[in-house]
């Protein structure tokens, strides 16, 4: 369906380089993963504003918090598992409680990290970050959105978690698309059901919507790139007008986008909902296509969930 694929982190690296030349307060820290998060361009252009911190993520986040407190805009870069889980106490206090203007940026968020296996697959990172008061969480859906989000995140004042994936994923947005933190985007109209997705699952959601359309089901597709704060107005419209929701994320179905949307629906208007994502389990090695299939994160899984939810909504079978 989408011909062009590109890793989000490539465009993040490009955006960082441009930010670096525009704003001398922007600094970058890495924990021995310079090229893995594509901060090499920045490090070569601005060596005095690039800080190699070695393999010690808690110290890196704390150091960045100190820099932010002193007025700099630090981008802290490492893999999602290390950024949010290993360094969690620093993120909670030094960054979160201090309301420090740190931009915690991860790559390797999600389940598609190649063959690295369970320790490097981070699909609980968004849930961990959601628990920290005042944390803003941005999950771009493709490389272009990652590029645009990087500028918005730099401009925004306050702690942010910017979550990027590892593998090349379909490019579905344009470089000149407008990106605003907290403002979800309706990518496809429809009133039978709403698919609320983020990250690389947005592309699969659009594919699923096409499949559903061939059955005469019109699905609304929402790119909820900001998990915190959720765009309540877009979500409320979806609940009011579609009365059935499927969430889709490269994350556990506990505590992430699906969790956040369920919490909202539970207190606003309990309509039928299903959550597509990783179940309550650890991951394993494998190629992305194999992994996505095994763990139930394909366009087909989204479409099947949609049919089940519609059955609950209408009372007759769509499967």
């Amino acid at each position: 369906m989408f011909n062009t694929k590109m890793p989000m982190r490539d465009m993040f690296g490009k955006a960082l380089l441009e930010l670096g030349s525009k704003n001398s307060d922007v600094v970058v820290l890495t924990a021995d993963l310079t090229d893995a998060i594509k901060t090499t361009l920045f490090s070569k252009a601005f060596p005095d504003r690039f800080f190699q911190m070695g393999i010690k993520e808690s110290d890196m986040v704390g150091t960045a918090a100190g820099m932010a407190i002193d007025g700099l805009i630090p981008f802290v870069t490492t893999f999602a598992a290390f950024a949010t889980s290993l360094a969690n106490q620093s993120v909670r206090v030094s960054m979160g409680y201090n309301e420090a203007n740190v931009k915690l940026t991860s790559s390797h968020g999600g389940i598609c990290v190649g063959g690295d296996g369970a320790t490097h697959q981070s699909f609980e990172d968004i849930a961990l970050m959601r628990l920290i008061p005042g944390m803003t969480i941005v999950v771009p859906c493709d490389a272009n959105e990652a590029y645009n989000a990087t500028f918005s995140v730099a401009k925004y004042i306050g702690p942010v978690y910017l979550r990027l994936g590892r593998i090349p994923t379909p490019v579905i947005t344009k470089l000149d698309d407008r990106f605003e933190i907290g403002h979800a985007k309706v990518l496809r109209e429809g009133n039978d059901i709403a698919i609320v997705a983020n990250g690389m699952m947005v592309a699969f959601a659009l594919e699923a919507a096409d499949a559903l359309a061939s059955d005469g089901i019109q699905a609304r597709v929402i790119n909820m790139h900001t998990v915190k704060p959720l765009d309540i107005s877009v979500l409320k419209s979806a609940v009011d007008e579609c009365s059935a929701i499927v969430t889709a994320e490269e994350h556990t179905i506990i505590g992430g986008l699906g969790g956040a949307v369920s919490e909202y629906i539970g207190s606003y208007n309990p309509i039928p909902i299903e959550r597509v994502g990783v179940k309550d389990t650890f991951g394993e090695s494998g190629w992305p296509d194999e992994i996505l299939k095994k763990y139930g994160l394909t366009a087909n899984d989204i479409a099947n969930s949609a049919r089940r939810v519609l059955t609950r909504k209408i009372g007759r079978s769509f499967s």
């Binding site: 808690s58 704390g62 002193d70």
Partner: peptide, 25 residues
């Protein structure tokens, strides 16, 4: 209060960050 402190070890890292920032400036 430059940084909230309580969980031990954390303030030291923040102090380094402030010192690095001050030097950069």
């Amino acid at each position: 209060v430059e940084t909230s402190s309580g969980p031990l070890g954390q303030g030291f890292s923040v102090a380094n960050g402030i010192a690095l920032s001050q030097r950069l400036k």
